[in-house]
Amino acid sequence: MLMAVLRSLLLALCLLGSVAPAWSIAVDTPLDDPVLEARARAIHKQLRCLVCQNQSIEDSNATLARDLRVLVRERITAGDSDDAALSFIVDRYGDWVLLQPPVKSGTMVLWLGPALFLILAIVSIAVWYRRRPSPVVAATTPLSADEQARLKALLGDGDPV
């Protein structure tokens, strides 16, 4: 009897677990105007979820991400431009919420760093190649008269010794 009750409780819990994500999507009602909704979606994709840090708020199930999605839709409906809606969120959470960091003096290292490293690598390789003693040069040094005589002897050119 007890086991049966426990088993059905467990089943109920499992079912509840599988339903929960569907609820969170159901609460997230899209805007009626498809153009506005598309703009809101585009903004959602640019915003980082603060709770699960490597997801955009579009992808995240966190409640804060949902609140922010709703907020962005509200700003768009209220007539905000895309930039205004984005900076509304940035004013509260900082540049950190932008998945693509803005280009400013503080982020120059981030943006130019890879290019600088590439240039540095190309220059170092070029320098290394130029400095390397060339084996071709060594081989073309003409042989002295002694060496030529020995070579001749070794190759067996002319009379056998």
Partner: peptide, 13 residues
């Protein structure tokens, strides 16, 4: 209740 003021304060956790 709605967490809207929390967002204004930059609350995320």
């Amino acid at each position: 209740l709605k967490g809207r003021v929390g967002i204004d304060w930059g609350v995320y956790g």
